Computed example of a mutant assay.
Amino acid sequence: MTRKLRFRGESHHKVDGKGRVSIPASFRRVLEAGDPNYTEGLNPELVIVYGDKRRKYLECYTVEAIEEVDDKIEALPRGSVERRMLQRLFNTQSHATSVDDTGRLVLPAKLREKIGLSSEALFTGAGDTFQIWEPETYESEELAATEEWLDDLPDNVDPLIFLDGPSGG
């Protein structure tokens, strides 16, 4: 079985006035591996989903990851509210793009404004997707929520126990 590349780690990058931001090199390798049309010399494609108003970040999908989401949406009954809403969130409120020749993304103003991004972006790996955050928002909300979750666990509980399901076994 081939090992599937994953987005891992976090990295800060400058954003210029035109919304250009470098993608971490390791993330570019995952985008290349997750784009069935990618070949050496081409730029890998990706989809940036921005629609969920509750999310204060941009969620970036490889071509394969977004196709998996699309397949699940298409399996829902045609005309159902769930299908229409998910189509709106993942198809309408998304931005298909590619990495440029210098390893950067160009983030349109609408997307930067949605998350309050100005001069610096924080890239965070999330397995088969990655997120782009305004660094202070990540610190104050996402990191704080993780710390709170850990603080609520008894001292003798290792978070790895949750990998085996809700009962821990």
Rank of each mutant, 00 (worst) to 15 (best):
Y138R: 04
S167A: 10
A75C: 07
L76N: 03
G17R: 11
T97N: 06
V21P: 04
L46S: 00
T62E: 07
V47Y: 02
L86H: 03
G169I: 12
S98F: 02
E141C: 05
V30Q: 02
S119M: 13
L42C: 05
P135M: 11
T97E: 05
K72S: 11
I73W: 01
A33H: 04
D52S: 04
G165Q: 07
T62F: 06
G17P: 02
L5A: 08
P77V: 01
F7M: 05
E147V: 15
L89A: 10
N91Q: 14
D70E: 07
L46Y: 04
T92I: 12
R88Q: 09
H13Y: 01
K110L: 13
L111H: 08
I66K: 10
L143R: 14
G103N: 12
D152E: 12
G125W: 02
D52M: 00
D100Y: 04
L46R: 01
D164C: 08
Y138C: 09
P44V: 01
E45K: 14
E120G: 13
E32M: 04
T137S: 14
V69D: 06
Y38W: 13
E136A: 14
G17K: 12
E148V: 06
T97S: 15
L105N: 12
G19I: 05
I23Q: 00
D16V: 08
E59H: 00
K114Q: 12
S98M: 09
A96T: 05
A96N: 13
L122Y: 04
T62G: 02
M85R: 15
E134V: 04
E82Y: 08
T146M: 15
I73D: 02
G19W: 09
V63C: 07
L31T: 00
E141I: 07
